Computed example of a mutant assay.
Amino acid sequence: MECLLCKQKSTTKKVRSRFVEVAKYDTDFCPIHADSAVNSLYYNIFVCPHCGFSYYEDFPRYFPPTTMEIILEKVSSHYVPHHFSKERSIKDAINTYKLASYCGALKKEKHIILAGICLRIAWLYRIKQNKEQE
């Protein structure tokens, strides 16, 4: 992948759709996977290991004026390098979504994209059986 912010290249993991078998969906469309070891929700967010910018594949490449500088100041300058390119735990997945939500808010993404990220965070907490956070 190429980071939308810093343009550096890095690798990431993504679950191939042919390996994802959804057994059923909850009433809010949360996918219940047939094999709990393969959860595609864990890998929907891309995290740049260089600058920390995190984004969903639906984020447009366009940055409104001054948002790049704001993200560099509020995220990249404080980012402690992590590599999320390996197998992710549910805790890693939640952290990537939260960071993507913050980056998306700073980037002024559409509300529907931010809402989708927040909904997926709730799903991950449901999988973790943390009703309070869900």
Rank of each mutant, 00 (worst) to 15 (best):
T27M: 13
N39G: 12
G116Y: 08
P49T: 02
E87I: 14
A115P: 00
S101N: 09
L5W: 03
Q129G: 05
M68G: 07
K7D: 00
E87A: 12
E69T: 11
T27R: 15
K110Y: 05
Y102A: 10
K107R: 15
G104C: 10
I121V: 10
E109W: 03
C118L: 12
D58F: 08
K9C: 07
L99S: 08
I113D: 00
S101F: 09
R126T: 08
S101V: 03
G116R: 03
S89T: 15
Y56R: 02
K74A: 04
E69C: 11
N44K: 10
S76Y: 01
M1V: 09
L4F: 06
Y25S: 04
P65A: 13
S10H: 12
K14C: 08
V22T: 13
F19H: 13
I117M: 05
N39H: 15
T96S: 10
I112P: 00
H82E: 10
F19Q: 13
F29A: 11
A122N: 14
T67P: 01
K7W: 04
A100C: 12
E134I: 04
G104Q: 05
N39R: 04
R120D: 03
T66P: 02
H50Q: 03
K13H: 11
R126Q: 12
L4S: 02
R88V: 05
K98C: 04
V15T: 11
N44R: 13
E132I: 09
A115T: 03
E132M: 09
L41T: 07
Y62Q: 13
A34H: 07
I121C: 00
T67Y: 04
P81S: 14
F19W: 13
W123F: 10
E21L: 06
V80S: 10
M68W: 00
A23L: 15
H33F: 13
E21F: 06
E73A: 15
E2C: 02
F63M: 07
D35H: 10
L119H: 05
E87P: 04
Y62S: 05
K86F: 14
L99H: 00
L106F: 06
Y125W: 08
N95D: 15
M1C: 05
C3T: 00
T66N: 14
S85K: 07
Y79M: 02
C30Q: 11
L72E: 08
P64M: 05
K86G: 09
P64S: 11
K128P: 04
L41F: 07
V47L: 01
I117C: 00
E21Y: 05
Q133L: 14
S89Q: 09
A115Q: 15
R61V: 08
